[in-house]
């Protein structure tokens, strides 16, 4: 989880829908063995959520069917200047947080 990459505009107009692309380094170990699915040492990023301007604007619950180094892209409406906070949580309890400032110009 030590490498994270976020691609998004730094400036947007109020009301504009912006696309955000995120990638995080994570092996997404399924734990699948011959004995069954996820029975041995599963370690995946299970939750990703994004907060901006007082609300959760996107959330993803992930299963082991998501590829290693999960890429997630989504959109949000630019409302007012503020931090966009990205949080990833994995099975070991580790949490990674990234913050990006979005500057919003009047429409």
């Amino acid at each position: 989880m030590r490498l994270r990459r976020i691609v998004m505009p730094e400036i947007a107009r109020a009301g504009e829908v912006i696309e955000i692309r995120t990638v995080i380094l994570h092996p997404m170990i399924t734990g699948h063995t011959a004995a069954g699915a996820g029975v041995s040492g599963r370690r995946i990023v299970h939750t990703f959520h994004v907060h901006y301007d007082g609300a959760e604007v996107f959330r993803a619950e992930l299963g082991p069917g998501i590829a290693a180094n999960p890429l997630l892209t989504f959109t949000t409406v630019a409302t007012r200047t503020g931090d966009v906070v990205f949080t990833w949580m994995d099975d070991t309890g580790e949490t990674a947080v990234e913050t990006r400032l979005l500057t919003v110009a009047p429409a």
Binding site: V17, I18, T30, H32, G36, A37, G38, Y52, D53, A55, E56, V57, F58, R59, A60, E61, L62, G63, P64, G65, I66, F74, T75, T76, V77, T79
Partner: peptide, 16 residues
Amino acid sequence: PVALIARFQFGPRSGR
């Protein structure tokens, strides 16, 4: 082996 690959949650603030 696991049927649910992902669940994405949206709201009006998502835009799309």
